[in-house]
Design a protein around this nucleic acid. Structure first.
Length: 471
RNA sequence: GGCAGGGUAGCUCAAUGGUGGAGCACUUCAUUCAUAACGAAGAGGUUAUGGGUUCGAGCCCCAUCCCUGCUACCA
C-alpha cells in the first residue's frame, strides 16, 4: 500500500468555471477514488492560479481589489468541486503566503544551479496568453489567434531567463523512456517532436510595473515578479509543503499523476520537468492529457456566448448524471461534445432505463419475498482495472453497463415472478450479488449513487423511489 | 508548407488483409418484477472520392477532397 498523489490543473480564476473544468475535476476525482478504494494513501490537489496578470485586469474591469476578486472566483471553483462530489484534500491558492515562500525556494534552487540569468528582452506581449509573440505568430491584424481584437503590448525590459535549452537532451531521454510518462501516446509524440526541434530559454520574470505589482517577488530583486507559469506549476509542490513543511512534502512528492487539458501540455511536459531537474528535485511520474468539450458541436468561447456552466446541469439532472456523462459518453482522448440534449438522452436510456430500472425491479422482488442481502464480494472487474490504468473511463464504465444488461437478461430468463420457495430465493440472491458487484465497481464514477445502492442492498432489502426518474 | 491522427449505420464509436459490428435512436413482437421500463426480432452501409497491389482491401500503395492536433528555419 503506497501513497498516490494526484493533481488536477490549477485553473485561472479570472472567470467562472465552465463545463471543461467540471470534466477535469470529475476525471481526477474518479482516478483518486479508484486508488483510495485500492487502499492507497491518496492525496488530491487543485488550486487557483491567482498570480496571472489576467486576474489583475479582470479585477480592474470588475472594479474590485485584486485579492477580493480572486477570493470570490477561487471560491466558485471550490464550490463546483463540492457540487460535483469531487474531493480535493488541498486547494492551494497562488496568493497564499506559504506558496510565495515555496516558489522563492524553487527559484533559489534553480539559481544556485546556475540556470537563471538576466537578459534584456524586447517583444510583443499578449496579456491574455501571458506570452511573447513574434510577428510571424500573429494574424494579419497583428493580434494573437487566441485573443483577436486585443492589441499586443510592445515591451522592452530586463528579465530573468531560465536555461531551458540546457535540459533538452535530458528531457528527451526522460520522456522517451517513460520515466516521465505522457498519456496518450500521440501527445507524448508531439512533445518529443517539439523537444527535438530545439528549445529556447524562456523568461521567468516580469517587471513590477507590468504585473501591477501582483505576484510572487523575485528573491533578491524587488523590481520583478516571478512569471506566473513558473510559480503556478509550483503549486503542485507548495500545496504539499515544499518550502514550509518538508516532512509532508517528502511523504507525497513526487506526484504520481498530473491531470491536465491539452492546452497546457508544454508547460507540464517540458517547462515543469526542466525546472525540477534544475532544482534537483524529483520528477512527477505521469501526465494524463485530456481533450476538450465542445458545446452543441461548437468550441466554447465567450464571444460565441456558449460557455456552459456545469452548475446548471447539476441542478437540472443531478451530480451523478453529469459525472456519468463526462466519464461514459466521451473518449478522454478526443474532444467530446456536451449538450443538455445528449445528457438527457444518456440519462434516460442508461441511468433511468438501465441502472435505475434494474435496481427498482430487483429491490421490489426482494421486498416482496423478504430477501436479506448477504455480504457483497467487493471484487473489481478485471477489464475495468485494465481500462482504469489507461484512463479509459468510458470503456471502464462500459464494463459495468455490460453487467447491468446481463442482469436484466437473467431476470427475463429466470422469471422470478413465476418461481417459488428455494428456487426463487436462489434466483433473487444471485441478483442481489450482481447488483452489489455493479454498485461496488461503480463507486469511483458515481459515488452517491453507488452508496445509495449499497445501502439499499444491505440487510433487509426495501423498494425505494427511483434513483433516476425518467425525464 | 511540414509532421501526426482521422473520415465506417441518423448519432457516438469498434473491426491481426478473409462473410463490415456494438450502443443510442427507430420499427415490430412478446412480457409485467420494474421508472410506457426490461427482453426478442428487424430495418438501417457502394467503409470520403478515384486509381492500384492481391485469389481477396475498411485495413496495404498512389492521387484527390475534407476534419483535428502540433509546428515552421530559409527563401
Amino acid at each position: 500500500m503506497g501513497k498516490y498523489y494526484i493533481t488536477a490543473a490549477i485553473p485561472y480564476v479570472n472567470a467562472k468555471p465552465h463545463i471543461g473544468h467540471a470534466l477535469e475535476f470529475i476525471q481526477t476525482d474518479t482516478i483518486a477514488r479508484y486508488h483510495r478504494l485500492l487502499d492507497e494513501e491518496v492525496l488530491t490537489l487543485s488550486g487557483g492560479d491567482e498570480n496571472a496578470l489576467k486576474n489583475v485586469q479582470a479585477a480592474e474591469a470588475a472594479g474590485k481589489e485584486v485579492q477580493e476578486f480572486i477570493n470570490e472566483n477561487t471560491k466558485l471553483f471550490e464550490e463546483l468541486a463540492k457540487k460535483l462530489n469531487v474531493q480535493f484534500d488541498v486547494f492551494q491558492k497562488g496568493s497564499s503566503q506559504n506558496h510565495h515562500q515555496s516558489s522563492q525556494k524553487l527559484w533559489d534552487l534553480c539559481e544556485k544551479n546556475g540556470d537563471i540569468y538576466k537578459k534584456s528582452y524586447r517583444g510583443l506581449y499578449c496579456v491574455g496568453c501571458e506570452t511573447f509573440y513574434t510577428i510571424e505568430e500573429l494574424n494579419e491584424n497583428g493580434e494573437c489567434f487566441e485573443h483577436p481584437g486585443k492589441k499586443l503590448d510592445e515591451v522592452e525590459e530586463e528579465n530573468y531567463f531560465f536555461k531551458l535549452s540546457k535540459y533538452q537532451d535530458q528531457l528527451i531521454q526522460i520522456i522517451e523512456s517513460g520515466e516521465y510518462d505522457i498519456i496518450p501516446e500521440f501527445r507524448k509524440n508531439e512533445v518529443l517532436v517539439f523537444l527535438k526541434s530545439g528549445l529556447h530559454d524562456f523568461s521567468i520574470s516580469r517587471s513590477n510595473e507590468r504585473t501591477k505589482n501582483w505576484g510572487v517577488p523575485v528573491p533578491g530583486d524587488g523590481t520583478q515578479k516571478i512569471y506566473v507559469w513558473f510559480d503556478a506549476l509550483n503549486i503542485y509542490q507548495s500545496g504539499i509543503g515544499f518550502g514550509w513543511d518538508e516532512e509532508k512534502y517528502k511523504k507525497y512528492w513526487p506526484a504520481d499523476l498530473h491531470v491536465i487539458g491539452k492546452g497546457i501540455i508544454r508547460f507540464h511536459a517540458i517547462y515543469w520537468p526542466a525546472i525540477l531537474l534544475s532544482a534537483g528535485l524529483k520528477l512527477p511520474k505521469k501526465l494524463f492529457v485530456h481533450e476538450y468539450f465542445t458545446v452543441n458541436g461548437q468550441k466554447m468561447s465567450k464571444t460565441l456566448g456558449n460557455v456552459y456552466d456545469p452548475s446548471i446541469a447539476i441542478e437540472k439532472f443531478g451530480t451523478d448524471a453529469l459525472r456519468y456523462y463526462c466519464l461514459a459518453k466521451i473518449s478522454p482522448f478526443q474532444d467530446g461534445d456536451f449538450s443538455e440534449e445528449k445528457l438527457v438522452e444518456s440519462y434516460n436510456s442508461d441511468l433511468a432505463n438501465g441502472l435505475g430500472n434494474l435496481v427498482a425491479r430487483v429491490s421490489r422482488l426482494c421486498e416482496q419475498n423478504n430477501i436479506e442481502a448477504g455480504q457483497g464480494s467487493n471484487v473489481w472487474c478485471a477489464d475495468l482495472v485494465k481500462y482504469m490504468e489507461q484512463f479509459k473511463f468510458n470503456e471502464a464504465i462500459g464494463i459495468i453497463w455490460g453487467l447491468i444488461s446481463e442482469a436484466d437478461k437473467k431476470i427475463n430468463q429466470d422469471k422470478p415472478w413465476e418461481q417459488k420457495g428455494e428456487k426463487l430465493t436462489e434466483i433473487l440472491e444471485d441478483l442481489v450479488k450482481r447488483i452489489q458487484a455493479i454498485a461496488f465497481n461503480l463507486q469511483p464514477f458515481m459515488p452517491q449513487t453507488s452508496e445509495k445502492i449499497l445501502k439499499q442492498f444491505s440487510g433487509q432489502i426495501k423498494s425505494n423511489p427511483p434513483l433516476f426518474p425518467r425525464i
